[in-house]
């Protein structure tokens, strides 16, 4: 498995995924949405598992990608 974070398009049916992401938040309060997002981050992080990639993902999300 590569130790490099993928930052090129990688999701089949990107529009469908995005709609699903919005749908799961539908009707939730801000607090409940924040909680869901936090759970989602943890679920996805566990799926990735690779510590080096997680570090790169944190930097990418902070818009501070490593040079």
């Amino acid at each position: 498995m590569s130790d490099q974070l993928t930052l090129t398009p990688n999701i089949d049916g990107a529009d469908d995924f995005y709609a699903e992401l919005l749908a799961v938040h539908e009707g939730l309060s801000k607090e409940d949405s924040d909680a869901l997002n936090a759970r989602l981050i943890l679920v996805l992080a566990n799926q990735i598992g690779n510590r080096a990639i997680l570090t790169q993902a944190l930097a990418a999300a902070a818009l501070k990608p490593e040079v």
């Binding site: 924040d34 909680a35 936090a38 759970r39």
Partner: peptide
């Protein structure tokens, strides 16, 4: 607190969150 509570909520259902 939000992240902490997320870990605890997940830990009830999924083993992966328990080490956190």
């Amino acid at each position: 607190r939000t992240l902490r509570d997320a870990v605890l909520d997940l830990s009830e259902h999924y083993e992966f969150a328990r080490p956190l």
